[in-house]
Design a protein around this nucleic acid. Structure first.
Lengths: 229, 229
DNA sequence: TGAACATTTCGATCATGATCGAAACGTTGC
DNA sequence: GCAACGTTTCGATCATGATCGAAATGTTCA
């Protein structure tokens, strides 16, 4: 009969191993990866990675599906991604002066996906631009899309009414750990990210959550959103 | 130059020790405690507790103030409490079947403070009652107080306009780890909790975050909110 | 200044869990 | 069935960090 503090400690211990943290961080875009791939990410042998993955699945942070002889691992729920993102914010807010981070993180800082929406400089700049044009109200804890904002996104083919039946909230802030300011999450954020991928404004990098902004993207973000990045 | 995954792991390692988790859990009501008191909570000697507290302060999870010969420790920011609460939700959502928890947690489950607002059965029941009377709109991600709700709280002496200058959001949901449903947070939630303490509907227990519901409280919650608890 | 008390620092010990080699398992394709 | 491949299980080793006794520090009060 564990107390809640004990369960908190157990969960934290699960995230506390550098290898497992790398694995979780890698999976935070919501996509699935094979055990072998994750072993490379964590920088350990497949045996060790398997042991880590087993623990993560056992404690319901990950779920696994078999695809032929390989096994695909992904985050169990969006809530897990949300909490990890929150922890990163606290981790980065913490011991000041240890910034800036490594080169690996530079790309992440510039533009990345945060589960299903955009984060980093790009994500925050887009949110700022939408806010500046009165398309969006967004602070640390609450977010709302204005009529004009809904119309603006609609003019780019984002019809948020069609997904109105979903339980997910339309528009919410998500604290960006690299920029320390909120960016746009919720269905609106996901739709915006999807639009950017579809129009080839951004491309997923083969590994990691960071995304590359294409030349077309730079143009589009400047001309459509007034974002010079 | 640590990567973000490394910082995530370091933060998690900080929370992963059972003693430190007990200390953090104890401080989640926002109040300060002495080092000696926290040593008792963690079940370790003062030396060991001091070592733990030093690490927590160093990594900016706690802040310390000297009061005479003793030192008072408290959570560094509300964000820390919010993240810990979120982690508890994931921890409890995780390996199902290990419920229910120990007796220590039974009191917490019934009624407790979540930093500055009410949680547990009581917190969720109050939120449900407010929602049922169309005083409140609240789901997992977004919350809003209706005109009628503002008037209702106003009729009990809660004037939310007077604190309108504050940066904190008026009304937001907070996922309750024991009930697995949202309760009321934000300024409105804090004001409601404050009201309950002032009218002696609830009392803080000497140790821990759980609160005791008084007989007057039982009456008040039933007659004013229709909450039978 | 000195005594009382809360807390921290130092040093040595000890336990937990991360790691990898070796081997077994399970799936696919021939 | 057998070989190839990805993955997991087992077993032994090793490193990190939690712990406490002893002693030092710092604060208050007389």
């Amino acid at each position: 009969m564990p107390t809640i503090a004990r369960e908190l400690a157990d969960l934290a211990a699960l995230i506390a191993d550098p290898g497992r943290a790398l694995i979780l961080s890698r999976l935070m875009d919501g996509r699935a990866q094979t055990a072998g791939e994750l072993a490379l990410v964590a920088g350990v042998t497949p045996q060790t990675a398997s042991w880590h993955l087993g623990r993560l699945v056992q404690h319901a942070l990950l779920k696994v599906e078999r695809r032929g002889p390989r096994r695909l691992y992904r985050l169990a729920t969006p809530l897990v991604a949300q909490i990890l993102e929150g922890m990163m914010t606290v981790a980065v807010t913490g011991p000041l002066g240890s910034r800036p981070s490594s080169r690996i993180d530079a790309a992440m800082r510039r533009a990345r996906t945060c589960y299903d929406h955009l984060a980093g400089e790009l994500g925050v700049a887009l949110a700022d631009a939408l806010r500046e044009r009165d398309y969006l109200v967004l602070d640390q804890e609450v977010g709302e899309l204005t009529e004009a904002g809904t119309a603006f996104l609609g003019s780019h083919g984002i019809d948020l009414r069609t997904t109105a039946r979903h339980r997910r909230v339309l528009c919410r802030p998500c604290l960006d750990w690299s920029e320390r300011r909120p960016h746009l999450a919720g269905r609106a954020g996901a739709a915006l990210a999807e639009l950017a991928f579809q129009r080839d404004w951004i491309r997923r990098r083969p590994q990691g959550r960071s995304v590359e902004i294409t030349d077309a993207g730079l143009d589009a973000f400047r001309s459509l959103f007034g974002v010079c990045i």
